[in-house]
Write a protein that binds this DNA or RNA. Structure first.
Length: 324
DNA sequence: AAAGTAAGCAACCGCATAACG
DNA sequence: ACGTTATGCGGTTGCTTACTT
């Protein structure tokens, strides 16, 4: 059975997202939470398909995304994880909560592949601390990922019992996530999309540097239409844009000061609770992190090289016996 | 300065599978 | 149990920018 693509519909817009579209999307998610992507188009007037909306949110707009160059530590983690899991970018991304699978995939394809090739042809493998890929069976890699996923799910389930200490945000309620991040003791409704607003502010900054001719029309049903109106061609357009832009920037500023205490990643890259709760539903598994197993230590450890052989020589039973 | 080329990255496409009626 | 729809994932494309000639 062949299904028609979701983006076949007439008037579905493609290509780069405009800041206006981003604002509409974020505004909608702020109100309704992420998920239910099919309703986004009908409720916001965005001429984008559900897939496109989800992708935009998960890859750029959702809170807690780190942009910019990868650190050495991240790089090594990706290399080790790629060896272990193959091209399962979503699984790899679950170990790097600040990075999206798309980002990691791109980075792998554009940088790491070449780098590894170079390193492998040279005799400096040991010095770089990067291992020669060990060929593993695909079933084994998948099984190991599944073990990891199952373990995380178990931790998540168990964490419900501990909810007297930690108020876990409702699934799909991104407001709660952010509220918790800024004020872990209460889940009030006053704060909102700090970090994805920051993302948009960043986009707007770029956009202002390189102005585009936007003819985007925001539907009247949109909750954000009072704040941003771009349909006019008069001089008011500029001031309204400026107003929105200014608001975003000020939001960005308040975000930076508000959240600096909440966001923290320790030296071993173990996420603190505050940070974990900053993730949206696409990365819920990081909420409670059990003590690192040998496997995870191997993944996180910069000096993983020495462990590689040991790990690979271990039987699966040994690998998994401590997990449950 | 202009043209050509390479690199980087955002976004799209198609497939697999989960969820739902 | 089956068909349909929604969602998630990985591969790929194509646009933009940087660099080279």
């Amino acid at each position: 059975m062949k299904r028609s693509p979701c983006c076949d519909k007439i008037r579905i817009k493609k290509g780069p997202w405009t800041p206006e579209e981003d604002i509409i999307l974020v505004s909608y998610i702020q109100e309704h939470g992420p998920g239910n992507w099919s309703s986004v188009t009908s409720n916001t007037g965005l001429m984008r398909c559900s897939k496109s909306c989800r992708l935009r949110w998960t890859n750029y707009l959702r809170p807690g995304i780190k942009r910019g160059s990868f650190t050495d530590h991240e790089e090594k983690m990706i290399i080790n994880l790629q060896q272990l899991l193959g091209n399962r970018w979503a699984a790899i991304a679950s170990y790097l909560p600040q990075r999206t699978d798309n980002d990691i995939k791109n980075y792998w394809n554009t940088h790491l592949k070449k780098k590894l090739k170079k390193i492998q042809t040279s005799s400096n493998n040991e010095k770089e601390g990067i291992t020669i890929p060990i060929v593993k069976g695909q079933w084994e890699r998948r099984l190991q990922t599944d073990i990891h996923m199952a373990k995380q799910a178990l931790c998540e389930a168990l964490s419900i019992d501990k909810s007297t200490n930690i108020i876990l945000p409702e699934k799909n309620n991104i407001m709660s996530y952010n509220n918790y991040a800024t004020n872990p003791t209460t889940l009030n409704q006053t704060s909102s999309y700090a970090s994805n607003t920051e993302n948009i502010a960043r986009l707007l900054e770029k956009w202002m540097k390189k102005p585009q001719n936007s003819a985007y029309t925001i539907n009247s049903g949109n909750s954000f239409s009072n704040m941003v109106t771009t349909t006019g061609s008069s001089s008011s357009e500029c001031t309204q844009k400026d107003y929105a832009f200014g608001s975003m920037l000020s939001f960005k500023h308040s975000y930076n000061s508000d959240c600096s205490q909440s966001l923290s990643v320790d030296e071993n890259n173990n996420l603190t609770m505050d940070y974990c709760l900053f993730q949206d539903e696409s990365k819920p598994k990081q909420v409670t992190q059990a003590p690192l197993t040998f496997l995870e230590k191997w993944l996180f450890d910069d000096g993983a090289v020495q462990c590689n052989e040991d790990l690979m020589n271990m039987s699966l039973e040994e690998n998994t016996s401590g997990l449950f």
